[in-house]
């Protein structure tokens, strides 16, 4: 394939993927109360933020946002710690333990989620945790997804084992070695894990649907899902909701895109 064709493919792909996104953002700026547009409108003639104001009147955005921030604020650091510790430990434990843990992590990626629902429901029910934010944060205890542990393991493995040995000989504990020698060298992967955790917890609708239904624990996805009932004449409000939900996740992607999108990529991994 020639150089020009490669660039052309990229341009086409960008347009195909970015055009709908642009239409959604500009669509959210259309003034409310106008009839639905009868054609594709790249930019509304008279852009306004009225749809966002209307959104704030329809759903308690402040409350939803606060709950979402509490969940991500706890779940993201928790995921980081759990995944990073586990990944770090796995690089230095015995071969058999390592193989077992890594094998388990990969097997767990193949367990369908419905397999967990009923028992988790009963667990939360017995512990009196239904309709609290705990079921939304809990997945972070298991590193949110085994993938984050695998990523952390991969990053720590790149650091020469001699560094661990040196630290150990100097009498450093495992925790100190992780904190002072390991962690500073895997910043890019740490950011990537944070991004993965954020994307999951920010958009987590399913766990809320299953275990936390009520008003004061509703998060942003739960509150905004109700707007699916709105009609074509309120389309700008629906777009505004989609933008509000998607923007933080996409910003997260942009901030870490060099590292997240490259952690599986040898060249970029060298940055760790």
């Amino acid at each position: 394939m020639t150089r020009g064709a490669g660039t052309a493919v990229r341009v086409v792909l960008l347009v195909v993927l970015l055009l709908p996104a642009a239409l959604i953002v500009t669509g959210s700026l259309r003034r409310l109360g106008l009839p639905a547009p009868s054609g594709l409108e790249l930019l509304p003639a008279d852009p306004s933020l009225s749809s966002y104001r209307d959104l704030a009147q329809r759903v308690p955005v402040g409350l939803l946002l606060r709950n979402s921030l509490v969940v991500t604020g706890i779940a993201v650091p928790l995921t980081l710690l759990v995944a990073s510790w586990a990944g770090f430990a796995l690089t230095q434990l015995g071969e058999r333990q390592r193989r077992f843990a890594l094998g388990a992590a990969i097997t767990l990626l193949l367990v369908p989620l419905p397999m967990l629902w009923v028992a988790r429901f009963v667990l939360y029910l017995r512990l009196g945790l239904l309709d609290t934010l705990v079921p939304l944060i809990a997945p972070a205890l298991a590193a949110t997804t085994p993938f984050t542990v695998l990523l952390a393991y991969r990053a720590f493995r790149r650091i020469p084992a001699t560094q661990w040995e040196a630290a150990r000989l100097e009498g450093a504990s495992a925790w100190q070695t992780w904190r002072r020698i390991g962690l500073p060298q895997v910043k890019a992967t740490t950011t990537a894990i944070a991004a993965i955790a954020f994307v999951f917890h920010w958009g987590n609708y399913l766990d809320a649907l299953l275990y936390a239904q009520y008003e004061d624990v509703r998060t942003l996805p739960v509150g905004l899902a109700e707007l699916i009932e709105l009609d074509a004449s309120d389309q700008p409000v629906v777009f505004a909701a989609a933008v509000l939900l998607a923007l933080p996740a996409l910003l997260g992607l942009l901030v870490v895109q060099r590292t997240l999108l490259s952690t599986t990529d040898r060249a970029a991994a060298d940055m760790d």
């Binding site: 029910l125 239904l130 239904q213 109700e226």
Partner: peptide
């Protein structure tokens, strides 16, 4: 539908 689902879950959860 959500209303019913919420009620059902509420009764199951004793809430």
């Amino acid at each position: 539908g959500d209303h019913l689902a919420k009620l059902t879950a509420g009764f199951a959860a004793g809430n």
